[in-house]
Every structure is written in C-alpha cells, then in structure tokens.
C-alpha cells in the first residue's frame, strides 16, 4: 500500500504559496526615510551650526539604545536593525531647538521609544507617533528650554535668542522657504523638507494624500480665517509634520480616503490651535489627536471589495 511514504520523504520543503517575495523590507523603508531627512539636517547644520548635528546624532543614538534595552528587558530579539528607532530619534531631534540640553533630549527619546513604542508592543503596535509624544512631553516638562530659539547663523552658548516666526509674525517668504528663521532644528527649511518629500514619493515610500491634504487644509483654513495662508504653511512645523509625521505608517490610516481625512483633520486642528488657542503651534497636538482617531477612520473608510454583495438593510419594522 505504501505508495506514499511520508516518513522517508523529508528532504523537500512543503509550504503554502507564494514561494517568492519582493525585495522590500522594513529596513529599506526606514533607510529611505532617513535619507529623505538628510537635506533638512544639512540645512539645519548650515543654519544652526554643528550642535544641530550633534543633537540629532545623540537623539538617534539614545533612541537606538533605549530600543535595544527594551528588547533585552522584554527578552525579544533585537529590533534595532529595522532602523525605526533611529528614524524616531532623528524625528524627535528635528522637533527640538538646537540649544536643547542633551540629558533632556535623552528623556525625550526614552518617552518616545520605551513608553510610547515598546510598552505597547514595539514597532507597528503603538497608537501614537512616538516622536510626537516625545516632543509634547518635553514641551510640557521643559517649556523654557523647548522655546529657547536661536537666531540663524548665530553660534555659541551666548547666542542671541529670537522668537519663531509664528510668535513674532514677521518673516519674508523667501527666508521662510529657505529656512533662514528661528525654530526647531528640522522644521525651519520648507525647501529641504520638500526635497525629502519628493524623494519619498519617488521611492514610493509614501503617497501624496496625507501631505497634500494637510498643507492644503492649512492653506484654505488660513485664507478663510483671514490669516496669511502662505505664511501659515511655511512657518512653524506644518511642513515637517505633513511630510514626516503625518505619513507615519503605523499611526495613520491605510486607505487613500482615510489618509485624506487624516490630513484634513490635522490641518483643521492645527489652524484652530494656532488661531484661537493659547499655543502658538498646533501641529504636534493635531497629529496626536488624529493618531487617536485613526482606528475609527480606518473602520469607516474600509474599501468595498470588487464584486462584494451586501445584504440589503432591513427597514425598521420588518421583524
């Protein structure tokens, strides 16, 4: 009877299809994001000096360190190779002024990596963007240091402080676009961020939906509210948030429609905070709030499968 003898046929692998994979990987995606952040980093070093680079490197290093420590404590294999912790570290640094103390920055990366990301189960499981929450915690804890802005091209510890354009409401469009203004490390140069945006689009890491919806909404809302729309999209963190934070895969919707809703929501909340609330800047809060709404957006933007048939809803009274 033994035509088939499973015992002696152990050489060949039997597994479900498909048997080939694309070359895409999480690591490659994160590497693309890091590359896309390089122009903004270069501009930042040009404008704020070498300390911008040191702070960014420090944030990336501590973020990776916290990630490895969490892996060790959770007895999980190391996940620093996927580069997501490095991305979070650099993003957090982009949200800090160049004079920010190193030890405080380490607290920020701890909140981002250990609390927001690893306590929820690591990459893919966090409900909010780690860098955003890190920034918000630092902002609330160390408000003075977080708003200690340096004038562009002023070097040294006794650098002259200046208000960001959002507070002073004065800067010409050219300076704003190039980034010759005060502000956080990575947010000042709209040009550099747009170079990163185009790069991410070209390598197909992100789609334009969220970014365009976010920036477009800020523009239109400002116009309607009687504010200067060009100033509003160039000043502050709108570009940084729209290109690098609101496009984070994990904490934003997965469908095109969901992404547009997410971007529009971010734009509206940003403007409401900027124009009508106590804070000068609302980008981080807007993204955090939309992160929290993401599961609901996902639920209501489910795609109709090709050829799906839904039973007709029973009218009330038909029992």
């Amino acid at each position: 009877m033994a035509y088939f003898d499973l015992e002696n046929k152990g050489k060949l692998t039997v597994s479900p299809s498909p048997h080939i994979n694309s070359t895409a990987s999480t690591q490659k995606i994160m590497l693309h994001v890091l590359i896309a952040m390089l122009p903004a980093l270069c501009f930042s070093v040009w404008i704020f000096g070498i300390r911008a680079l040191l702070l960014t490197a420090w944030c990336a290093a501590t973020a990776v360190g916290w990630e490895r420590l969490c892996n060790y404590l959770r007895k999980r294999p190391s996940t620093i190779g996927d580069l997501s912790a490095a991305v979070t570290g650099v993003l957090l640094a982009f949200n800090l002024p160049s004079t920010f103390p190193f030890w405080m920055a380490a607290i920020g990366t701890f909140v981002s990596i250990a609390v927001v990301k690893q306590l929820f189960g690591g990459l893919g499981q966090n409900f909010a963007n780690p860098a955003i929450v890190g920034r918000i915690v630092l902002m609330l804890s160390f408000t003075a240091q977080m708003t200690h802005w340096v004038k562009p091209f002023e070097r040294g510890a006794d650098a002259v402080t200046s208000a960001t354009p959002l507070v002073s409401k004065s800067a010409d469009y050219y300076d704003l676009f190039i980034g010759k203004v005060g502000g956080c490390l990575g947010e000042v140069s709209a040009l550099a961020l747009l170079i990163g945006f185009v790069y991410l689009l070209c390598v197909k890491v992100i789609t334009p939906h969220t970014t365009v919806a976010f920036v477009g909404t800020v523009f239109l809302f400002s116009l309607a509210a009687g504010e200067d729309p060009v100033f509003q999209i160039l000043a502050g963190g709108v570009m940084l948030g729209a290109v690098f934070m609101a496009t984070d895969y994990v904490t934003t919707p997965t469908t095109p429609l969901g992404k547009i809703i997410f971007g529009v929501g971010c734009g509206i909340i940003t403007c409401v905070i900027r124009f009508y609330a106590n804070y000068a800047e609302g980008v981080s809060f807007s993204i955090l709030i939309m992160n929290i709404l993401t599961p609901y957006i996902d639920r209501f933007t489910e795609i109709k499968p090709l050829g799906a048939k839904y039973p007709e809803k029973k009218k009330e009274g038909d029992a």
Binding site: H19, I29, I303, L306
Partner: peptide
C-alpha cells in the same frame, strides 16, 4: 532561492491593500 524570510511586525504600510486585485484588505 526559496528560503523563507523571518516575519517582523506589520508596519501598516498598506502595500497589501494597494496590490490586492479584488480590493481586499
């Protein structure tokens, strides 16, 4: 040629949704 690669966490990138010929998720 057919070595199975290690699975890592889903990062919700949505690529599976965008390639599904039947628009499933």
């Amino acid at each position: 040629a057919v070595k199975a690669q290690a699975q890592t966490n889903c990062i919700r990138c949505g690529r599976c949704i965008s390639v599904c010929p039947l628009k499933l998720m």
